[in-house]
Nucleic acid binder design. Structure first.
Length: 159
DNA sequence: GCCAACGTTGGC
DNA sequence: GCCAACGTTGGC
């Protein structure tokens, strides 16, 4: 059963352009250090799932494109590197604590669908990203939400 | 740069 | 296992 997701990233750290220009347009999504999100990466995400790429902490924040999960959860090895900002001594190769998936670029929207724009769609009002105080860097998206947002993106192209 | 929300830590 | 203090996220 295919699922849909939304991945947040600060574009100054890693943007959709960075993904587009990665080798084979694929990258590992490392650095998740939240247990709820870890569980999604480790247990729930499947190859073939689709995800929105969301730019956070920028002007304006919003969804900028889509990507695809191409490798299911495996240990986030950047947690093992003492020189990495993502180092965490809790995690070892024998007993990994943190996980990541590989994602592949699919497309970039011609126009960002800003957080403000998302808020104007009644049918999207239950999106986790719109919930005040939601800080999960990855959230599940329903099939309906996925399709509505793609429609919004196609509409914005015509204008 | 402010601040609300909320996850994590650590003392007890 | 409770909960206050603290740190981080992220919109504004």
């Amino acid at each position: 059963m295919m699922r849909y997701w939304l991945f947040k990233s600060e574009p100054t750290t890693f943007s959709i352009n960075d993904l587009e220009h990665s080798p084979n347009q694929v990258t590992y999504w490392n650095g998740v250090r939240n247990y709820q999100v870890r569980n999604m990466l480790r247990d729930e995400m499947q190859a073939g799932d689709y995800a929105f790429f969301y730019h956070s902490n920028c002007t304006p924040p919003g969804i900028v494109g889509t990507m695809k999960i191409v490798k299911t959860g495996y240990p986030d090895f950047t947690a093992w590197d003492p020189t990495s900002p993502y180092f965490d001594s809790k995690s070892t190769a024998i007993k990994p604590c943190w996980f990541m998936v590989d994602v592949q670029f699919v497309n970039k929207f011609e126009q960002i669908i800003s957080l403000d724009a998302l808020k104007t769609h009644l049918s999207l009002k239950n999106m986790l990203i719109l919930r005040p105080g939601n800080r999960l860097s990855i959230t599940p998206v329903t099939k309906q939400e996925w399709e509505i947002i793609l429609t919004v993106s196609a509409d914005s192209k015509i204008r």
